[in-house]
Amino acid sequence: MHLILFALFAALCLAGAVNLLFQTHPINSALSLIVVMTSLAVLYLLLGAEFLAAAQVIVYAGAIMVLFTFVVMLLNAGREERTLGSRAYWAVGFPAVAVLLAILATVVLHIQGLGSAAFGDSLSNQPGQTNLEQLSQVLFTNLLLPFEVTSVLILVAILGAVALARHTEPERTVGK
């Protein structure tokens, strides 16, 4: 049952990703990205990481992609110009991708083999505990410093965005 669902949603995910590249209209690409995100959420769910799956849907599919589509609609972006690319790209790009995939596949198979993945070593798989409790325990004990530092990083990004978008002339204040 898990294998069937995995195959189904992995295929959907890949189809979405390929469709994302081949669509010429930005809205269609954005929608394909949403398909990729939600199928990834289902894959997380199959791994037993239900909190991560929900966060994936809420944050990526529900918030970030809404902003993407919002901007595409607001700017009314037109169709993309399609170029065939230079011959050098075709000659170098495809073999490079093939080599990269082969290396990745070898490494992953070497470490783990063909089989179902366990949900990380950091989480204790006690039966009475929910996923959320385990995750928060790890986040707020072992990984406390990186977790808090990440929030500072996000704060810096927000401040940067505000500084970039701020009006320079003081007399042109909006909303007064």
Binding site: L31, I34, A61, V66, T130, L132
Partner: peptide
């Protein structure tokens, strides 16, 4: 009966935006 029931509802609500936007 899902142990992240509340998050599921929030997630589906956030997907529902696309209906209106599209």
């Amino acid at each position: 009966d899902i142990n992240i029931g509340l998050l599921v509802i929030l997630g589906i609500t956030s997907i529902g935006v696309y209906g209106i936007a599209l």
